[in-house]
Design a protein around this nucleic acid. Structure first.
Lengths: 217, 217
DNA sequence: ACGTACACCGTACGTCGTACGCTGTACGTC
DNA sequence: GACGTACAGCGTACGACGTACGGTGTACGT
């Protein structure tokens, strides 16, 4: 059992493998045994670099969130609206690239990377002229919107193995006579496949709403 | 092994027991074995009335959602704003009474009760003068807000076994010099324990935002 | 040359969801 | 009454899971 001549087991390597695996096979397929196979080590060897599965989850969020790169070049410090928009669009990109992230968002303990994002949003609001109380509300609304949207997208797009059949099953159980508006709604989903439109609408709803309260408290 | 002289095993009884158990011990503590113990039958007997665990989850959501009772008495059909507000407040009540629901919301296949809620919200918007497209957007924003808020509340209030210590651990790892706004934000959480304020703020943000788009498309 | 520390991992325990097949009762048909 | 069938209930078993524990070997400070 040589301990050298192997690439050396690292926390970073483990977490990166976990992210890659979850991207490929989904979060619920990720077990400590499969992760060890992926890394190429015994199952229990993982525990030399990781506390437990929750620790892996938290580290995965941090790892994936690390390539966040909001495009705020040339934006003034107090240009809170375009800044928040850039942060939101970029965050949605990361959340979309890693479908498992929204699941973990509220479960995993926030690390430094997530905290930096938090500070970023809050600082943007405060520099934009919002009071601490309004920045508080704005932050929560922002978080809710972006992550919630990504979560819905993830569960509806990927969570279902056969979206077409699932939608048909849903329509079969909701007669148009008693649920005309629901059927109409589902049809809108079937027609245009543009969730980008939804996201932009909700984001503007949020930003517009916040702006109206900028002077308060 | 008498099959009678026992209260008779029913799908309803199983689901009700599952809801009660999850309310008491949490969703992750709910296993098919423990549920069987709760009901007072063998584990596999459950499967005579239930497809699998996912089926139990979906039925739990339907069961809990069934005592929804929005206070819309005396409200005009086209009074969409107070109607939506009443629906939201009532839905939040149900989601708060059953902390596990927001977890299952996007996972469980929607049954007739959930569909009725959907139809209720959409009909309210359409009767209020919104176009199909705007009702579509409004519905999603509504869903996102209410369930997302409940989800955050549930994971932060109950998900943590020791909220006090967890918050302190978070503060310990985020120095005030580098993250002044984050610390400020967390302090606001510690000071006033009024999430009602947060919910009302976000709900009005949403309703105000929607109202501005009532004439469109 | 020896002691210690520690990365690695084989084994094992208690849990999970559920497939399978056996039981015994209830009931429709003569 | 006798018999056949259907079906609710459940004991057992299988393959997964997270992870506690203890052994084993290498590397390194002395």
């Amino acid at each position: 059992m040589p301990t050298s001549d192997r690439p050396a087991l690292t926390r970073e390597a483990i977490v990166a493998a976990a992210v890659a695996f979850a991207d490929r096979e989904g979060l619920e397929a990720l077990s400590m045994r499969r992760l060890a196979d992926e890394v190429g080590c015994g199952t229990m060897s993982l525990y030399n670099h990781v506390d437990d599965k929750d620790d892996v989850h938290a580290a995965m969020v941090e790892h994936a969130l690390a390539d966040r790169a909001p495009d705020t070049d040339g934006l003034a410090d107090d240009a809170w609206r375009p800044r928040l928009r850039a942060i939101a669009v970029d965050l949605l990109r990361v959340l979309t690239e890693h479908q498992w992230m929204s699941d973990l968002w509220n479960r995993a303990f926030p690390g430094p990377v997530r905290t930096a994002l938090m500070e970023d949003v809050l600082a943007t609001l405060r520099r934009g002229g919002f009071s601490p109380r309004m920045a508080h509300h704005g932050f929560h609304a922002f978080d809710l919107y972006v992550v919630g949207f990504a979560h819905q997208q993830a569960t509806f797009t990927i969570g279902l193995e056969d979206p077409e059949a699932t939608m048909q099953a849903f329509l079969d159980q909701t007669p148009a006579e008693t649920h005309p508006h629901t059927v109409e709604h589902v049809m809108l989903h079937a027609d245009d496949a543009v969730p980008d439109d939804d996201f932009a609408f909700m984001l503007d709803l949020l930003l517009d709403g916040i702006e109206r309260h900028r002077a308060e408290d």
